[in-house]
Structures are given as structure tokens and as C-alpha cells.
Write a protein that binds this DNA or RNA. Structure first.
Length: 428
RNA sequence: GGAGAGAUGGCUGAGCGGUUGAAAGCACCGGUCUUGAAAACCGGCAAAGGGGCAACUCUUUCCUGGGUUCGAAUCCCAGUCUCUCCGCCA
């Protein structure tokens, strides 16, 4: 298992070699300093050893072709030499790859520079923020008052950061999933997938969750310790890996996939943050969009995908804004990311509800996902993923934005067909 | 859980110790033909890595990892996965 992992890499050493200064500079935008000499030396050492090894291999091969018995002894000796060089070479290679695999994706040119979220830039604001003539309540107050949301019960059965959703709000949650799925399938050209919720170690590696972010993942205990499986933190993991180890026919691109799944996250390091309510849970539903495209279409596809996500909020008539993440705030695999944030009246601010990223060929290189282009050449595909949307947080946004003074919830019109035409969620 | 069979290029599928990196077909790319298309015909077409400005060339790879051999897709061992039959079960 482990051995399979070490073969993979994120960055192509050839590209780095061709302009290492530029590469190091690009990565520095992510607040990461690379040691140029270390990388260069390992690369040269590696290639020197490869050359030595190949020379001997050729010699050995030639002997074998002659079938000359007098040379057989020599061939045996060469084999031993090859073994020793090849051992050295693979050590160097692993060392080099360990360095390369810790390097995140390079931000695209149009990504703003910055250290953290304070440098993110708002690029669009949409929807009307409703003025309440009463103090708007938080979603968990509303839900608990209606007796349709129970955090204490979840603590009893499971632990903290879980919730029981009941009755009409459970229906609302289900309606949201179905509404989003239908829209993406029928209007946006996505194909529905109902995937496994467990992913192998290798799969987790492909999209970048492992090895660096293992502590965020829930691992499932299995009898066989070599067989490690994880609950998916997002359907992105399992959907994107559909093309792992494949060479895709160009005519099958773009592939657009959508899935509504539970997601599981440990959220290590976020204790004390958003402890109340459903904002940050260990388990939540999310409708996930994944696109597999020709790499030169990544930027266009990112715009398209983001529009698919905001389209849901447009239909639900919930105010939101679109933000482009700065270089320091982007996820590990992303080259460019838009966050969509919804307005939450109780907090009087926008909160993230979707994140749409282009990963360029970063993930496909780790997954070995390729396609044949117009010239019949084999190239890595581009991968994108985005939430369309996080169902739990959309639920929150609806409760808060559609709340009434009497504690009831008006059901957004587009959801009513999914809720037996229910217009209002009330206590009785 | 028991008993068998298998894993080969984008796909299907031959090969079972020595120019086999791998037949054949499909798909794909280029061309001839055609008003255009189809059909037919001709040609091309694996990947990764190394060297070279380049033409080109070398190495590795037939599930993975070990072993036997001068030489392995082919033989041996271990593992993974898939299929069929039986049992069990949502």
C-alpha cells in the first residue's frame, strides 16, 4: 500500500527544472520557501544514477542477446552492480519526491496575493438583504424552538458536533438535496452519481487529502490493517478519482458529475470555533459538482461551475457574495478558488456555503488521469470541484433568511414542489 | 465463509522461456475517393523515464512485490483485485 503512494508526485520535476527560479517564486506566493540547491542537487544526482544504471542494463541486455556462454558470468556480475546503483537511485528519488509532494499547487496569474483570508477579494454581491422588524434568531434557536432540531440528543447518542434533524426541517433538508440535484442534472448538464462513502488510502491521496491532512479524516477500523479506508470528507474525493489511472477518450470530455452525499470531517484544530449550531459538524450533506475537462478549458469551466452553484442561491432568493481566494487562503490542490458566501442575519455577516476550485492538472498528475488530445497525444486532464451547495449550510441560510416574527419559516417557492406544497413550517 | 477461473496497449483479445513492446479486431489520427457524409482502401497510433539543439536514441513497463535464469508477459512464491458456482444476507 505504502509503496504505491511513494511513486506519485504532485509537481513534474521536468517543468521545475526548466525554470526553477520561476517555480520557487510562484510557490512563495503561498508562503512556502523552497531550497533551490537541495532540489537541484537531488535532481542531478538522480539523473546521474539513472544514466549509470541504464548503461549497465544495456550491457547486460546485449550479452543476453549474444547467447554467448562465456559472457554469462560477467552478466551476473553486472546484475549485482545494477542492484546496488538502483538502490541508491531509488533512495535519491524518494527523497526528491518527498519534497515535491509537500508542495501545493501553483496559483494562477489572476489569483490575488496574500497571506490569509483578509486578502480575499469580493467580486460580486447579489440578492436583497431583508430588513427584519424583530431581532432575527440563529438557525439553532429557530430549529430547537420548532422542536425539529436536537443537538443534545445527538450528543447523547453520538457525541458533540452532530445533530438530529426532525419532521419538517428534515423534509426541508431532503427537499434541498433533491432540488439542487435536479437543477444540476436537468439544467446544468451534470450526471448523477451515487458513490461509495468510503475511500481507500490511495483514493484519498489522489485528490490531496492524504498524506498531509490525515488528521482531518475519519478512518474506519477494519480487520485488515493494511487495508485502510476513510469516510469521505467530500464527494470530490470519490468522484474525481473515477478517472484515476485512465486514459479518457477526448469525446468523453467534459465529464460533469454531481452527487449528494454525507460528508465526514474531524475538523481538527477548529475546536471552539462555531461550537453552536450546525455550521461546523462532523457530518453534513453536500451536493458536490466535479468536472473533468481538457486542461485549457479549466478557467472557463470554473466560471461555469461557479455559476451553477450561485444559480441555486438565485433560485432560493438568498443574498450572497462571491469572493476570490488569495494565494495564501487556497486549498492545497487548487490553482484558483471562488468561495460563495451566504448572508446570515443572526450573525450579520456572510458565511461560506460553497467553494469552487480549479485544480488544473495537479490532481490528475497524482491520479494518472489522462486523455488523448486532437493530435492524438496523451495529456493530463484538468479537474475541478465545487459545492453546489453545502446542504446543511443552505438549510441554515433558509431558516435564518426566511424566518418570521412568530418563529415560523416560509418555504421558498422553488422548494414547495419538493415538500408536498408546504408553504410554511410552523410549530403545530 | 467454501470451490474454481482469471488479470496483457484507449477497448476486445492472441501469445505461455530468446528481435514479443507484444498478433488480430475495434476506437482514434492522417490521407485517397466523394458535391458533402458514409462505406471502401492506404498509412500512422502504448506509457513513463534518461541522453541529444534536433533528426534520433537508450532504459523500464504485459495487476503488485519478491524469486529462478545469461535471458521472463511466459516458470516459482506472496499479495491485491475481478469473474463464475455454492452458502449467508440487507
Amino acid at each position: 500500500m505504502k509503496k504505491k503512494l511513494k511513486k506519485k508526485r504532485m509537481h513534474n520535476i521536468k517543468d521545475i527544472r526548466s525554470d526553477i527560479d520561476k517555480f520557487i517564486e510562484s510557490i512563495s506566493k503561498r508562503n512556502i520557501k523552497l531550497d533551490k540547491n537541495e532540489i537541484t542537487e537531488l535532481d542531478i544526482k538522480n539523473r546521474t544514477l539513472i544514466q549509470e544504471k541504464e548503461k549497465l542494463e544495456k550491457e547486460k541486455k546485449d550479452i543476453s542477446k549474444t547467447k554467448d556462454k562465456t559472457l554469462f558470468e560477467k552478466s551476473k556480475k553486472i546484475s549485482l552492480e545494477i542492484d546496488s546503483i538502483s538502490k541508491k537511485q531509488s533512495e535519491v528519488k524518494i527523497e526528491l519526491e518527498n519534497i515535491l509532494s509537500s508542495i501545493p499547487n501553483i496559483p494562477l496569474e489572476d489569483v490575488p496575493n496574500g497571506k490569509d483570508e483578509s486578502s480575499n477579494i469580493e467580486i460580486e454581491k447579489k440578492g436583497n438583504i431583508k430588513k427584519f422588524n424583530f431581532q432575527p434568531k440563529s438557525h439553532h434557536e429557530i430549529g430547537e424552538k420548532l422542536n425539529m432540531m436536537d443537538f443534545d440528543l445527538a450528543t447523547k447518542t453520538t457525541g458533540s458536533r452532530f445533530v438530529f434533524i426532525k419532521d419538517k426541517i428534515a423534509l426541508l433538508e431532503r427537499a434541498l438535496s433533491n432540488f439542487m440535484l435536479d437543477k444540476h442534472i436537468l439544467e446544468n448538464g451534470y450526471t448523477e452519481i451515487s458513490p461509495p462513502l468510503l475511500a481507500s488510502e490511495n483514493t484519498m491521496y489522489g485528490t490531496g487529502q492524504l498524506p498531509k491532512f490525515e488528521s482531518d479524516q475519519f478512518e474506519v477500523k477494519l480487520d485488515d490493517k493494511n487495508d485502510r479506508k476513510f469516510l469521505i470528507p467530500t464527494a470530490e474525493v470519490i468522484l474525481t478519482n473515477i478517472v484515476k489511472d485512465k486514459i479518457i477518450n477526448k469525446k468523453d470530455l467534459p465529464m460533469r458529475l454531481v452527487a449528494a452525499t454525507p460528508c465526514f470531517r474531524k475538523e481538527a484544530g477548529s475546536y471552539g470555533k462555531d461550537t453552536k449550531g450546525m455550521i461546523r459538524q462532523h457530518q453534513f450533506y453536500k451536493v458536490e459538482l466535479v468536472s473533468i475537462v481538457e486542461p485549457n478549458h479549466c478557467s472557463d469551466e470554473l466560471e461555469r461551475m461557479t455559476n451553477c452553484a450561485t444559480g441555486i442561491l438565485d433560485s432560493l432568493k438568498i443574498p450572497y457574495r462571491k469572493v476570490i481566494l488569495c494565494s495564501g487562503d487556497m486549498g492545497f490542490s487548487a490553482e484558483k478558488t471562488y468561495d460563495i458566501e451566504v448572508w446570515l442575519p443572526s450573525e450579520n455577516k456572510y458565511r461560506e456555503i460553497s467553494s469552487c476550485s480549479s485544480c488544473g492538472t495537479f490532481q490528475s498528475r497524482r491520479m494518472k488521469a489522462r486523455y488523448k488530445n486532437d493530435k492524438n497525444e496523451t495529456n493530463h486532464v484538468g479537474t475541478l470541484n465545487g459545492s453546489g451547495l453545502a446542504v446543511g449550510r443552505t438549510l441554515i441560510a433558509i431558516l435564518e433568511n426566511y424566518q418570521e416574527a412568530d418563529g415560523s419559516i416560509t418555504v421558498p417557492e422553488v422548494l414547495r414542489p419538493y415538500m408536498n406544497n408546504l408553504k410554511k413550517i410552523t410549530n403545530n
